[in-house]
């Protein structure tokens, strides 16, 4: 029971309170870049969930069984980036072979995730927070869910903004920035939440 409560608290924290995009400000590039259409936002979100979970798993293993025993913690960043990049490449190949339809739907987003700092962020945070193996995997999953939630919300708002009558100077990027700021403010409302 205690464990379940802890997991639940972790989920709330990762998805809402410490949302990767709106509270930690990680992964802003896809947040602005891929939030123009609801479909692609959802596709990107799914890909990120998958990669974050996988990356959490592998980076935790590498940190615990390779870097710490050899006292090479300072290699953390580069080793993690290497892992994430290879992982994304592998995932891309596997998806292309096994599910060509999904591969087409995700398109360019898959390789883009390699450079998504939110993925590296979740891997490093897992280590800093001293999570155990299961917790690290779940944290990766929840972080991905939080990212997807925000991305989909943003895409929904921006789809409606396309049809809104805006002053010319506000069209496109300026209003997207304002919306992003407002959303961050709204998510700040979760910050008092403690379970």
């Amino acid at each position: 029971m205690d464990f379940i409560a802890k997991i639940f608290a972790m989920a709330i924290a990762a998805i809402f309170v410490q949302n990767f995009v709106l509270a930690r400000f990680l992964g802003l590039c896809p947040y602005i870049g891929v939030s123009k259409k609801l479909d692609s936002a959802l596709g990107m979100g799914m890909a990120v969930i998958f990669v974050m979970t996988m990356a959490s798993t592998f980076t935790w293993l590498i940190q615990t069984y390779l870097l710490i025993p050899l006292k090479l913690e300072f290699l953390q960043t580069i080793a993690f980036i290497l892992t994430i990049a290879s992982l994304v490449q592998l995932v891309e190949m596997v998806i292309q072979k096994i599910a060509p339809a999904l591969y087409k739907a995700l398109g360019v987003f898959l390789p883009l995730i390699t450079t998504n700092c939110a993925v590296l962020g979740v891997a490093i945070l897992n280590i800093n927070e001293n999570y155990n193996f299961i917790e690290a995997i779940l944290n990766g999953l929840f972080a991905g869910l939080g990212f997807t939630l925000v991305l989909v919300l943003m895409a929904g708002i921006r789809e409606r903004l396309e049809r809104a009558e805006l002053p010319h100077s506000m069209k496109g990027m300026p209003i997207a920035m304002i919306v992003a700021g407002s959303m961050a403010l709204a998510f700040l409302g979760f910050s008092g939440l403690k379970i």
């Binding site: 290497l82 592998l90 190949m93 596997v94 072979k97």
Partner: peptide
Amino acid sequence: IYAIITLGALGLIYGLGLAFASRKFHV
């Protein structure tokens, strides 16, 4: 030496893994 070996080994393993995967999952 450890750092170089570790990183080199990681790169090598990933590289080999990917090479193998690209063979196996070749479309």
